[in-house]
Nucleic acid binder design. Sequence first.
DNA 1: CGCTCTCCTCTTTTT
DNA 2: GAGGAGAGCG
Length: 806
Amino acid sequence: MPSPDHRSDPGLAHTPRPGGIAARAKAHAGPEPGYLGGLNAEQRLAVETTEGPVLVLAGAGTGKTRVLTTRIAHILATGRAQPSQILAVTFTNKAAREMKERVAHLVGAVAEGMPWLGTFHSIGTRILRRHAELVGLKSNFTILDTDDQIRLMKQVIAAENIDEKRWPARQLAGLIDSWKNRALGPDQVLPGEAQAFANGRGGELYRLYQERLKTLNAADFGDLLVEAIRLFRENADVLELYQRRFRYVLVDEYQDTNVAQYLWLRLLAQGREPGQRNLACVGDDDQSIYGWRGAEVDNILRFEHDFPGARVVRLERNYRSTGHILTAASALIAHNQGRLGKTLRTEDVAGEPVTITGAWDSEEEARLVGEEIEALHVKGHSLAEMAILVRISAQMRELEDRLVQLGVPYRVIGGPRFYERMEIRDALAYLRCVASPADDLAFERILNTPKRGLGDATVQVLHAHARAARIPLMEAARYLVETEELKPKPRGTLRELLTAFGRWSGLMDTLRQGELAEIVLEESGYTDMWQRDRSAEAAGRLENLKELVRSLEEFPDLQAFLEHVSLVMEIGDGDTNERVSLMTLHAAKGLEFETVFLPGWEEGLFPNQRALDESGRAGLEEERRLAHVGLTRARRRARIYFASNRRIHGMWNATVPSRFIDELPESAVEVIDAPASYSYGGYGASRFDTVGQTPSSYATPGWQRAQARGFGSPGGGFGRGGTGGGGPGHGGFDRGAGQARRRGGTVIEGELVAKSTGSSAFSNGDRVFHQKFGPGAVVAVDGNKLTVDFDKAGRKMVLDSFVTRG
DNA sequence: CGCTCTCCTCTTTTT
DNA sequence: GAGGAGAGCG
């Protein structure tokens, strides 16, 4: 309750805030519950407007999750619903987990928790398993991930005698995905779009793929929603069951929903009686960055239209960033059209301006970022409070190299997930075969892994028989080992494998799944395969397998584990140690850091050329939202960088500062002249200076001259005078880059020597092991700096703290 | 059947 | 530049 004179519970420490909705809030009377304390007026309105459709527009850092969880707490505490009557959906498991924890914290552990709080997909799965037979599946259907999907599509394409090279399965997967995102079945595909693949056979292949899925008793991720929608549409009684059950529906990140998710929600939230239409969606149109995977910003823009009588609550008070950061982010996003419009405000100080630093090339950029991280670290800033956010993962390598050289610990967030690693997928395939012998895709995967002489020829025979007899591959194999169809050698090997599987399946009930997994991996020769492997990654892979066995033990049984794996592609939680975080801008959504580094703000990279080419203005606006997300991750410091030269697909390209830089207000930014750098200090009042825009005070006329000569930037010309006429082409760049590199070398030298304490414990000829480069031999020692000839990775310079004796 | 070489492609990513 | 996939050779 915002009014200061409001009587409050003893001990309730809530800051009175100005607001004008006291009367409305008071309608709920009674002593004020503690969980409402500390909410501002808008947040409180969002929490207490429980009935009817509500859209909460929650800008970055405005307490979105808090509103969502408090709202659930409020519904429970006021007895409006039981935990099992609330449907709360998120996109990621992480968000779901967080919400569960926070609700539990607010209301105290409610007996059965919140059974219907989860991701769209996990809840979809749950519903689908209960009514599987209504959509042609069995309740124990398997969930295929992208890898399985593509392999299956390859088979479908091959079976239709279509040239997979000309019409790649990946592309078909993309198409089918986009259809499923819009809840389109094979019959509903627009003829024009079906035309886009294999001369109009797109729709046909989609149908065949769906048929294969049903035969395999499998569903892909899209099906978890689309089949649920079909289930609801074709079975009014089932739909009504759920409509009645879910008295309150809450949706997180509504701006990321696709058409299928929207339809799914609408079916569930639009009960016949008014009391069933309590839908609350929380989102931020300015943070919609997943359009490329089917998210429809339109869903949030049209909310009021779709749900008549909807209330819209705007959360605009930002509790995260300082004034300058917020000003910069707001000014940037204001360039977007077609937004619902919010103005973020803060009561925090203006703080440090957003800095913009130009570098000669991406290598220097990485160096500048590294130096700044060190400088802040020396001043006592925690590394865990710093993050480098990049547009594409390809940017990470150079930054990583730099951090390794500096000895700055870091962690990459996102990247290949644990369960996507080859060795994990192989191991899982073994377990899947043990648990369900009819899992053809799994069986095929491990049939010849490790190599046991069951190659293409054998697979072909198996397939032919399985298809003809309409039985799973494993069953076909059992039959074939009793016949003469296979050559004696593969036949014997296959028989052995089948016997082993029989044995392992028999152990399922008596052994703990972890032990079982160990036995399977051991006896199948899989562990052995990696132990014999002398490559750099082998050790890590064995580690991962151990980790898998360990995490397996956390589940009651193998089935539960496999279910978890197909839906929750993650394991453990990243340690929050003293480490700099490195991730893509996409991965950064929802996170915040004291200091955020934003390298690579160049035309073509960010905004990304491909986004522009493929989606035009909408693409540009999504890129701009991405920039907005990036800036608003920062609490106190945001540092933007751009390089004048960058290697793209292995080729050096001259680049131009991002138009987003030009869109930042001068009042909130500071242009840094990188000292001792060959970058041209300051960025031009670029060609993006359109009519009516404030001309930049740091414009350099040389820029436009360079432009005119076909140089992306004055690259060769600045600072050294006179070489500008060197002309475009690689010669000029190579020279420039070469000099920057030489110069950079000295700087590196200084840093590293300064850091070295005493001499290294290693000497020439020592065998060492490096986490990233694998085994190698020391060829030179210089302080704490080693030059190592790595067996696989070649000669590298590394710090001794990064290697172990090996 | 398996290994090696060459060619091709190449955002963003969750479930 | 680097990884993945397919072709071709041993």
